[in-house]
Design a protein around this nucleic acid. Structure first.
Length: 594
DNA sequence: GCCGTTTTCGGCCCGACTGTTTTCAGTCG
C-alpha cells in the first residue's frame, strides 16, 4: 500500500488560533447533540445541523449578518436559530445551551463521536448505568453491564470497545492528498478484477472536497460476492467492519475507512450519483424528482406508481430525466448548481489540460530543492509553456530568503536557462514571493521590485494581529502596484491551524478592483483560497491562479488538487491565469504598474 | 426549527447493515 509520504494527519484538531465563528459553530453542533440526547424532535435537531452547514460557508460573515440583521436571509436560518446566534455573538454563550449542558456531562456528548454509537445509546448508558465518560463506558462494556441493557447485547458491547479504540487511534478527517493516494491503488486493483465492469470512487473525494472522512467505491458487477471477497482481502485492508450482500466496510492501513457498494450494471449510474453526494445535493434532487412525480433512489428514477426505472447509462441521463443539464461532481453541493442546470447555465469548468503556465515555485536559491534547469526540463516534458519562479524574499531568513545580490544572480541564471530551453517553448519568469511586512509593504526597494516580472505577495509572520489590523495590512499590499498575485489568503493549515483573522471578502473585492490575481494554493495542506470564496471571487470579477507552491518537482503534482478546488469554485479557463500565455500573463501584471 | 409557484400547518429523502429482536430501532451516509 502506498502511503502519502508516510505523513498521516493527526486526527485531533489543534487550533493555534480559534476564531469566534469556529466557536459558534462548535456550540451549535454541540447544541444539536444535546437536543438529540434530550430526545428532541429529530427535525428540530436536523435544523441545527443544517444551520451549522449554512453558517460554515466561508462567504458568510456571521458578525456582519448580526449587525445588519440579515441572518434569516441565509437559507436554513430562521427566527429561532438567528436568536441563538445573536445571543452568542453578543454575550459569548447561549443560555439554553447552558441548561442542556447541565443535564448531560461532557463525557456523554463525547460518546456520540464513537462510531456506531449515537445519541440514543449514549442516553441509555447514561440514564440506565450512570456512565458519564468514555472511559467508564469502556469499563461497563468490559464488565458486562452494557450487554445486559435492553436493546444492547454482547456484540454491541464489543463493537463499542472497538469503536472507542478506533476513535482514539485515528479520529476525524483526512486531507485530500491522503484520500486520493489511498484510493488510487484500490481503484486500480478493482479495475483489474475480472468480475468488475465499472468502478469509480464516489463521495467527497470525487467532489474534490479539501478533506475526506472515508472513501466510497461504487462498482458495477454481476458477481458482487466475488468482488466483495476480493476487496475485503486486499493487502491494504486492516479490518473488515461490515459485510453484506451489496456493501462492505473496511478500515485501511492508513486509518481511513472505505466502503464498497456493488450493484448490477443497469443500476450503476444511479448508485454512483447517489454515493457521490453531497447529501444536500441529493436531498434537493430528490425533492425536485418528487415535485416532478418521480421517486429517486440509488436504484433508479421511478415515475409515480411505476416499478420500472427510467433508463440511464451515464449520470448525465439522470439529470436529463429531471430536466437538468449535467452537473459536474465538484459542483454538487446544493449551492445553486441545480438552479443553474435547470436554466442550462452551467459553466464550462477549467481542466488540467487547459493549463499553460505555473506561477509560484521555489528553487534551491531559497528553501526549495530543484534547480532552475530542473523546472525548465519538467515544463518541457509536461507541455508547460511558462513557469513563474518565486523564491522567498529577504525578510524570510528562516526560508533562505534572497538578499538583493542573490536575486541578481538568479536573474542571470534565468536568462541563461531561458536561452537553453528556447526551442522547447519553455520560459521561466523572474518573480519573487515577497513577504508582506508588518506594515503591509513589500520586501525590497522599488528599484528592485520593478525588475521582477511578477510578484506573489504573502503573509508569513505576525498571524495574531486583530482582524482589522491584518485586513488593513493585506489591503495595503494589494494596493501596491508591484503586487501581481496575492498568495495563500489565510495561511490556514488544514486539520491543524485555522487561518489568520482577516476579512477575506473585503480583500477579494479590493483584488478585483486593483487587478490583483488571487491565488488558489495547491498545497493540499492549504488549498487556500477556500473553494467557497473562489466562487465569491469570480462573482466579484477577480482573476485567479492555481499555484503549485512547489518546493520539489514532486510537489508539482499538487496542481491536481488546486485545479480540483478551482473547478469546485466554478472557475472557467478565461478567468484562470494558468490558461493564459506568458505574454498575456505579463501584460495583465504590467497594466497596474506605474 | 425551517419552510411555502398546490402550503402559515404539516410536512421534513431514502435505503443498507447490524444486532437485537421475532418485526424493529439505531446508526450511517
Amino acid at each position: 500500500m502506498h502511503r502519502a509520504n508516510g505523513d498521516r494527519i493527526p486526527g485531533r484538531r489543534q487550533h493555534l488560533t480559534v476564531t469566534p465563528k469556529t466557536r459558534l459553530l462548535d456550540q451549535l453542533k454541540k447544541m444539536a447533540v444535546l437536543m438529540e440526547l434530550d430526545g428532541a424532535n429529530p427535525f428540530r435537531v436536523n435544523a441545527y445541523t443544517k444551520a451549522v452547514r449554512a453558517l460554515g460557508d466561508e462567504t458568510v460573515d456571521v458578525e456582519q449578518a448580526v449587525r445588519e440583521g440579515t441572518l434569516t436571509r441565509i437559507d436554513g436560518i430562521g427566527k429561532g436559530i438567528a436568536e441563538k446566534v445573536e445571543e452568542f455573538v453578543r454575550h459569548g454563550l447561549i443560555a439554553e445551551m447552558t441548561e442542556f449542558s447541565a443535564k448531560f456531562p461532557p463525557g456523554v456528548v463525547e460518546m456520540t463521536e464513537i462510531p456506531g454509537f449515537g445519541a440514543k445509546k449514549a442516553r441509555a448508558v447514561f440514564g440506565e448505568l450512570g456512565v458519564t465518560t468514555v472511559e467508564e463506558l469502556e469499563r461497563a462494556c468490559r464488565d458486562g453491564r452494557v450487554a445486559e441493557l435492553k436493546g444492547f447485547g454482547a456484540k454491541t458491547a464489543d463493537k463499542i470497545v472497538q469503536g472507542i479504540a478506533s476513535m482514539r487511534k485515528h479520529s476525524g478527517r483526512f486531507r485530500i492528498d491522503v484520500a486520493w493516494e489511498t484510493a488510487q491503488p484500490i481503484l486500480k486493483a478493482l479495475r483489474g478484477h475480472d468480475a468488475v465492469e465499472r468502478v469509480e470512487v464516489a463521495g467527497s473525494l470525487r467532489r474534490w472536497r479539501e478533506t475526506a472522512k472515508d472513501l466510497d467505491f461504487v462498482c458495477a458487477t454481476t458477481k458482487p460476492g466475488d468482488v466483495m471477497e476480493f476487496f475485503t482481502t486486499l493487502e491494504s485492508v486492516d479490518t473488515v467492519t461490515g459485510q453484506g450482500p451489496t456493501k462492505s466496510s473496511v478500515v485501511l492501513d492508513t486509518g481511513m475507512s472505505a466502503d464498497l457498494r456493488c450493484v448490477a450494471p443497469e443500476h450503476f449510474p444511479f448508485t454512483l450519483q447517489h454515493f457521490s453526494g453531497s447529501k444536500e445535493h441529493n436531498t434537493a434532487l430528490r425533492g425536485l424528482a418528487k415535485r416532478k412525480g418521480m421517486k429517486s433512489s440509488e436504484y433508479g428514477l421511478f415515475p409515480e406508481g411505476s416499478e420500472t426505472s427510467l433508463p440511464a447509462t451515464e449520470e448525465a441521463d439522470i439529470y436529463r430525466h429531471l430536466g437538468l443539464a449535467y452537473i459536474e461532481p465538484e459542483l454538487r453541493e446544493d449551492m445553486g448548481e441545480i438552479e443553474a442546470a435547470a436554466k442550462g447555465a452551467m459553466p464550462e469548468l477549467v481542466t488540467a489540460g487547459d493549463v499553460r503556465g505555473l506561477p509560484h515555485m521555489h528553487t534551491e536559491y531559497s528553501d526549495g530543492q530543484p534547480t532552475l534547469d530542473a523546472y525548465a526540463k519538467w515544463a518541457a516534458q509536461n507541455g508547460i509553456g511558462w513557469m513563474g519562479i518565486s523564491d522567498h524574499s529577504k525578510t524570510a531568513s528562516y526560508a533562505g530568503g534572497l538578499q538583493p545580490d542573490r536575486v541578481r544572480k538568479q536573474w542571470a541564471e534565468i536568462a541563461k536557462v531561458n536561452k537553453e530551453w528556447k526551442d522547447s517553448g519553455v520560459r521561466l519568469l523572474r518573480g519573487i514571493e515577497s513577504d508582506i511586512l508588518g506594515d503591509g509593504s513589500l520586501d525590497y526597494e522599488e528599484e528592485m521590485l520593478k525588475e521582477f516580472e511578477f510578484i506573489v505577495a504573502s503573509v508569513h509572520s505576525q498571524f495574531n494581529l486583530t482582524e482589522e489590523e491584518q485586513t488593513a495590512r493585506m489591503l495595503k499590499a494589494v494596493e501596491n502596484p508591484y503586487t501581481s498575485i496575492l498568495g495563500h489568503m489565510t495561511g490556514r493549515l488544514l486539520l491543524k491551524r485555522d487561518g489568520y483573522r482577516v476579512n477575506q471578502k473585503e480583500i477579494v473585492r479590493r483584488c478585483a478592483a486593483e487587478g490583483v490575481i488571487v491565488e488558489i494554493n495547491s498545497n493540499p495542506a492549504r488549498l487556500d483560497l477556500d473553494w467557497t470564496l473562489v466562487r465569491f471571487a469570480l462573482d466579484e470579477g477577480c482573476c485567479l491562479c492555481v499555484s503549485p507552491d512547489a518546493h520539489t518537482l514532486g510537489m508539482l503534482e499538487h496542481m491536481r488538487y488546486g485545479i480540483g478546488i478551482a473547478r469546485k469554485g466554478w472557475v472557467t479557463k478565461d478567468r484562470l491565469a494558468n490558461c493564459w500565455s506568458a505574454d498575456e500573463f505579463l501584460a495583465f501584471v504590467r497594466k497596474r504598474r506605474p
